[in-house]
Design a protein around this nucleic acid. Structure first.
Length: 465
RNA sequence: GGCGUCGUGGCCAAGUGGCAAGGCAAGGGUCUGCAAAACCCUGAUCACGGGUUCAAAUCCCGUCGACGCCUCCA
């Protein structure tokens, strides 16, 4: 039984879908005005892992992630760079898409964009006005009337009266209540604008997500995800808009990932303490970021430190060791030992599922996997042959894949391999003659070139890294 | 100040009433010409103070601390 922590109720709840066997899932994507950073990667990875696990558990998952491609910052950035805002947005969309692919994040079922959902957005704003949940004061703006939506604040646990203190009405706004928020913003000269019943303008930030949900997934969805910095006001406002519009509960489960921290603070564009995904990937294997995420709890803050990255890289190396083939001189294990290994692998799968079923406890799931790795390695050391190792390794691969780890061996240029093999072969002859200084020199020099040699009684194995 | 999440060995982190998983790091050992890998062994009175209970990391109250949100933000 899968249980999910629901931000809305602040409890773990049994997961039940609106439609049996199907999951409708929406995750807030990014606003595309600059390169995505590893904090965005964390969020993408968290929901990719969730999506993969739901699929593994037999659900058909419809996974929607949007792009906010029109907003103040995009416009400001475009003006500053003298670039067309659409082109700028498109460039960052392409970049982020490339980043996600590199991180082995499965493509979304749909990637709607605000600019391509405009008629739906306008319809929704119009509908909210008709129902009395929104008003157009005549300056070209349209605002949501928070006092009309009695449940406003239910997601973030705030009450309107408590929030008024800090809220202020900007110059030019004509809000009835300080917490009212813009559904539609009148265009200023030179800004991208769309025709609407209220004049030329563009959508507010929150309405696009409500409209895209409606367009892509329908009035009600199972899971709505995003970073926990979106709980207020973004998701709170989404709930207000969607539920006011449809009269139905919007998302069944609200899931929020914790923030990635650099130097003890949230990594963010506004703080400027960020490392872009591109920068990260020039230094690290994409699996490293995924392993870092897997090793923690998705709801808790995650520290991005050299030590943590190093630890993640070592852990990946260890995982790979479980997939090594049998020793060439393997004599085989007694039948009962071999079947015990398979039994343990099957038990690992159950432990893995129990952990993941408990609100996607990836750290617990990994622990089970590591124990299987140890069992496989022990069996190999005790002489298990490949046909005895492989059934357990197949399960290990299956579970690793659910988590989205590729565990690819590092590779160098293909042409180099035959020369390395030649060197290893020559070195083996040298070792037979016990010319240790020379064979150590070859090993050390290859290490400097990124090739690791491991000698054993069965010969020498080499790998990149 | 308000709302929320959390505080477990050197670091990361499971465990939510019954002898404290796992990974990284460290030390010792097996193997090896050496090294590496793999395997074996070694370590925690679970932030602090009260309380409930036969029994608490786990439940309740309080204190301290961290982080996020309350303005754009994954």
């Amino acid at each position: 039984m899968l249980r999910i922590y629901n931000t809305l109720t602040r409890k773990k709840e049994e997961f039940q879908t609106l439609e049996p066997g199907k999951v409708r899932m929406y995750v807030c994507g990014v606003t595309v005005y600059s390169d995505a950073h590893v904090g965005h990667a964390m969020s993408a990875l968290v929901f990719d892992i969730i999506r993969r696990y739901l699929t593994y558990r037999g659900y058909e998952v419809r996974f929607v992630m949007n792009f906010t491609d029109v907003d103040d910052k995009i416009i400001a950035r475009a003006n500053q760079m003298g670039e067309d805002p659409y082109r700028l947005a498109q460039r960052y969309i392409d970049g982020y898409t490339r980043n996600l692919k590199a991180l082995n994040v499965l493509p979304a079922t749909a990637n709607p964009r605000a600019t391509q959902t405009m008629d739906k957005i306008i319809n929704m704003v119009q509908g909210l006005i008709e129902k009395g949940y929104a008003y157009a004061p005549g300056n070209g703006d349209v605002y949501f009337r928070v006092t009309r939506f009695s449940e406003y604040g239910k997601l973030s646990g705030r009450r309107l009266e408590e929030m008024q203190a800090g809220a202020r009405i900007e110059i030019g706004e004509q809000k009835e209540h300080p917490m009212d928020f813009a559904l539609w913003k009148a265009a200023k000269p030179g800004e991208p604008a769309w025709d609407s019943p209220w004049g030329k303008g563009r959508p507010g930030w929150h309405i696009e997500c409500s409209a895209m949900n409606l367009a892509e997934l329908g009035e009600q969805i199972d899971i709505h995800g995003g970073g926990n910095d979106l709980i207020f006001p973004h998701h709170e406002n989404e709930i207000a808009q969607s539920e006011a519009y449809t009269g139905k509960p919007f998302a069944r489960y609200w899931m929020h990932n914790g923030m990635l921290q650099l130097g003890g603070e949230k990594m963010s564009k506004s703080l400027g303490n960020l490392i872009t995904i591109d920068e990260f990937l020039t230094q690290h294997d994409p699996d490293t970021m995924r392993m870092l995420v897997l090793s923690g709890n998705y709801r808790a803050p995650l520290a991005f430190t050299d030590e943590a990255l190093n630890s993640a890289e070592k852990a990946l190396e260890r995982l790979r060791s479980g997939l090594w083939p049998a020793s060439p001189s393997a004599s085989g294990l007694p039948a009962e030992a071999a079947s015990a290994l398979l039994a343990q692998a099957e038990m690992t799968r159950q432990t893995f599922i129990s952990a993941m079923d408990d609100d996607f406890n990836t750290a617990g799931a990994l622990a089970a996997i590591f124990e299987l790795v140890k069992a496989i390695n022990t069996a190999r050391d005790q002489g298990a042959n490949d046909s005895q190792l492989q059934p357990a390794q197949a399960i290990l691969r299956e579970l690793i894949e659910v988590l989205g780890l590729r565990l690819a061996e590092k590779t160098g240029s293909g042409d180099a391999e035959k020369f390395i093999e030649l060197l290893v072969e020559v070195r083996s002859e040298i070792r037979k003659q016990k010319l240790w200084a020379l064979s150590d020199l070859i090993r050390d020099r290859l290490k400097e070139l990124g090739v690791t040699l491991e000698d054993s009684k069965d010969g020498t194995r080499w790998r990149w890294g």
